[in-house]
Design a binder for these strands. Sequence first.
DNA 1: TAGACGTGGGC
DNA 2: TGCCCAAGTCT
Length: 365
Amino acid sequence: MKKKPASPTVPPAAIDATLTQDALIPWAAEFQAKLLAWFRAEGRDYPWRQTENPYAILVSEVMLQQTQIATVLGRGYYDRWMTAFPDVATLAAASEPAILRVWEGLGYYSRARNLQKTAQAVLALPGGQFPESVEGLLALHGIGPYTAGAVASFAWNLPAPLVDGNVARVLTRLMACDLPIDQPPMPRRLWEWAGILLNRQDARLHNSALMELGQRICTPRSPACLICPVNTCCASAGPAAASRPKKSPARATVLVIEHTLLAIRDNKILLHQETGRRRQGLWKLPLRTAAETAALPLLHTAQYAITHHRVTLHIHAFAPDNANTNSNAAPAPQREDETWHSLADLPLLPMPGPYRKSLNHLLRQ
DNA sequence: TAGACGTGGGC
DNA sequence: TGCCCAAGTCT
């Protein structure tokens, strides 16, 4: 099978020049037409594609940041959120624990808090409506270049390009680019390419189609070039595709061991609320050093990953009533930032997924 | 600007 | 199993 040779990286000068779409990418019109035809015939029907409500679209986009559709839809996060907080006013008035509880398990919890900040900011705008421009959207918390382009094009069909992981992969393959996509000058160049290729009359469909192409056809490991609707436009179609895009090496995984206490008395459990950047506002079991827990019985061990850490979570039994009969290795039962909570309230408290799972396991009987 | 930020799924 | 990846943003 005869393939276009993998062309060398597109010279920056050819891209940066201010020229017409046809001169920059001669196959742009063909690409747009084939992409749109494919999407009209094969595109999936997601809840956020059945609405032009900017709030509903924003919620979906924020949930989908670094998160797969199967998680957001299959595990019910989108439906639960839209039921609990159906509009900007409801979300703006909600309590933070209520928000975090609905978000629990999705990760990147600042997304949930920023969504509420944005709801409050929108309500405070004259008219109380979302700004109908990329610039206006970018000024809101948690809305970056991708999400601004997504809301602008999906809600109002504005001619705004967008680049996410899917689009970046499609574009580097189309252009046979071997520069690392996470380092200059690639991020800027990808946005330029997306802007040049954008179908300005049908930005909504075009952007949806481009992402879905990346998600379903132009996949990271085994791209389906043979059935790709735009393979005639692609400089990587065939074996070369899987080698793109290039990326900087991932950070090394760091091993961490957490020793925690399961302290229960009078149907109350001792918990600690996170106040730092990580998992802020969520409740965890009290953390202790290995030495402090060495003499305590080990109840449960679990493993989980958080960003580039690999965590082994040990949960030790601690009986506050017996504390003074224990050796001097026994930990203080309670520290300043730790509080007792009724076991009945446990389902209401936002908690990192691994802790929730371990507690459910331990308290089942 | 490079690092930090959660979690689950696929291979 | 241990990576890589997923509709990114913030500091």
